[in-house]
Structures are given as structure tokens and as C-alpha cells.
Design a protein around this nucleic acid. Sequence first.
DNA 1: TGTACATCAGTGAACGCGCGTTCACTGATGTAC
DNA 2: TGTACATCAGTGAACGCGCGTTCACTGATGTAC
Lengths: 184, 184
Amino acid sequence: MAERTYHHGDLRRALLDAAIEAITETGPAGLSLRDLARRAGVSHAGPTHHFRDKPGLLTALATEGYDLLTATLTAVRPDTGSLLELGVAYVGFAAAHRAYFEVMFRPDLYRADDVLLMAARNRATDALYGGVTDPPDDVREAGLAAWSLAHGFATLWLGGALPIPPNQDPTRTARQVLRSLGSP
Amino acid sequence: MAERTYHHGDLRRALLDAAIEAITETGPAGLSLRDLARRAGVSHAGPTHHFRDKPGLLTALATEGYDLLTATLTAVRPDTGSLLELGVAYVGFAAAHRAYFEVMFRPDLYRADDVLLMAARNRATDALYGGVTDPPDDVREAGLAAWSLAHGFATLWLGGALPIPPNQDPTRTARQVLRSLGSP
DNA sequence: TGTACATCAGTGAACGCGCGTTCACTGATGTAC
DNA sequence: TGTACATCAGTGAACGCGCGTTCACTGATGTAC
């Protein structure tokens, strides 16, 4: 941070952080570049130099989010190799990084055909499937089911639809729920 | 419809239909009352008389959505009593009424404490749990799991995250996936 | 070590736009007598 | 059957606001000599 100088130092990073903050507060819908510039303490025309426009910024954000998810998932797998713990980690990611999560799965907000983004998303998918390539149908369906289950639980929880005391860590309930369907 | 007269006839209905149309096209984020008035062929101050403001309109929309979901779910249950078919119907609802679905689960967009809305949501929850009140923990968890699974599948599909050919009816795959976890 | 110059990140004024909201209004409809 | 009146749905002009985008600019930094 240091004291304000003419050159910011790392405005790109500061704008992304401001976006995370803003989205956490009010969701991705009402995001405005001018607001982000304000939060970063910079003139409203500043963001243009780093991200061309709003979709540009959100593309960068989603890319970062996918890499963060990849890191979360790969940190789990070697320990247990369990689909259950993978699902729990997925829910934990959504809870800990709600802003990233909400942007990542709303591709209408960003440029879904961006090269860097697609690469990051593929890495996340690989981490989710644990390196199993071209699985047989039943394994593929079980994987899809586990993913859907974890994703649905996370989404419903984020939307406040689940009858869970607010502010309680959702991974506790998530583990019970995931277990109840007998993940392999 | 008939020819345009000074009084519209059923502007409330027309505005809700316009909202469904607009949301289906571009998502709930960019919705504007002025656009809905335009679509309904009415002056831009018209909507105020029926819905005070945007959250007011979306509250009405979500309420209608919950009732539609209730109808869909209750239509299934007596036939089969199966959690599997209930899940398939849930996914089918999301696909057939994407605009309703997208609003219903984004409570930040409307007044979640509205009395009519809460009543409609409770009716939908009852339909989902099939009238089982105060279930034991394991049944409750299995229900939550089935709901999460169906909801997650629907959400991922709507977001284009699933490797399914576009325009293919998702309930086909949904049935396989739901079955693969051995729903009771 | 000093000077000249290129590069580029951030500035701030200006623009046009669509939005929500307010307001006095007017046309249509229904009801009382 | 006709007339008077109340009600209310929809009008259209006006307002202020925040937004994205453009543009000539200026301050800071780094590099060549």
C-alpha cells in the first residue's frame, strides 16, 4: 500500500480485490467499474488500462477463481483420495470464496471463450476428476452426481435456502449430507 | 390482447409475462421496469400502479414460480412416490421455466420476507418433502441430498457447465445421474 | 554521474444514455339515483 | 333510460443520478548515451 503516489503500484490487483469485496457485499449484478476505481482510490478512468471493460475484469476474476478451486481440490485428493472429502472441499471453497464462486458459474457475466479462462477451467475440471481420463459411463455419471450434489448444496446454502443456522460452517452439514448418499 | 385501448385490460399479467421473456433473454441482472413497460406497450410509469418497484415485481414473479414448482412436484408424486422421479421433475421445471428458477433462488433480488412469497415457498417445500413432517435425521439428510443433487444438476446445466449437447433435454441425463447414486 | 527522451499508468473534464421516481393530468369504467 | 359523479388505470413531461466511454493531458519511471 504505502502512501499514495501518482502510480499506484499494483492497481490491477487492487481492482480485483475491490471487486471481490463489492461482490461479497452486494452480489455481481450491480458491480460498476467506477465503484471499483473509487474503492481502489483511483480515478474512474483507471480500470480501462488494465481491463478493457466489465466483462474483461470479470473474466480475470473467474480465471483466478478456477485456479483457486484447482488448488483447493488438489490439496485434498492426495490425502484421502475420497470423493466425499472432495465434495466437502468444494462446498468449503464456495463458502470461503463466495464472490469467486458466484462469478465463475455465471458465464453470461464474462467472456467464456477467453483462452486463459478456458485453460484455468480445464485445470479445475481435471482436478475434480482426479486425472481419470475418458472414464466408463458409470464412473462418469457418479462423478457428475457427486459434482451436482456438492454444487447444489453449496448453491442452496449461499442462497439461504437451506435450514441451517446462519454463520454455521456449512461443511459440517455438507459432510453428513454427502455421506448419506453413500459416496464411494 | 385485442386492439389497444386506454385501459390495458390485464397489465399486471402482461408485465409479468414480459419479465419472463426479458429474463429468459438476458438474465435477471439487467432487468428494467422501463423495458417491461415498453414490451407491454404501455407508458413507462405504468408498472408503478401494479408493482411498486423492481423488487416488488420480482417478488410476485418468485411467488408465481414457487406455485408452479409446487404444481409440477405434486403432479409427479402420486404416480410413483419416487424420489428419483421427483428429482427428474425438479430438473425439468428448471429447464422449462428457467426465468422463474433463476429468480426464485436469488433472494437478494426480491423481498424474501413477503408474506405471500413465504407461503408459496413453504407450499413448495412441503411438496418436495411429500408431506413428511419432522422426519428423522437420516431421512432429512437423504432429502437434502436429493434436493441438492437435483438443484446442482439443474444449476450447472443452466450455466452451461455440463458436457451435454446443447438443446438436448437435460432430464434424460438427469435421470441417469440421479439413478447412479441409488436414490431409494 | 548527469541529461534527454520514450513509455506508460493514471487524471479529470466532458459526453450521451437509460434508468427510477414524481406529478399533475386524462381517459375509461362502474355505480348511484 | 339517462345523467352525475367517484374511482382508478395509464399518460407524458420533468428531474436528478450513476454509469460507461472517450480524450487530450501529465506525472513517474526506466533506459540510452
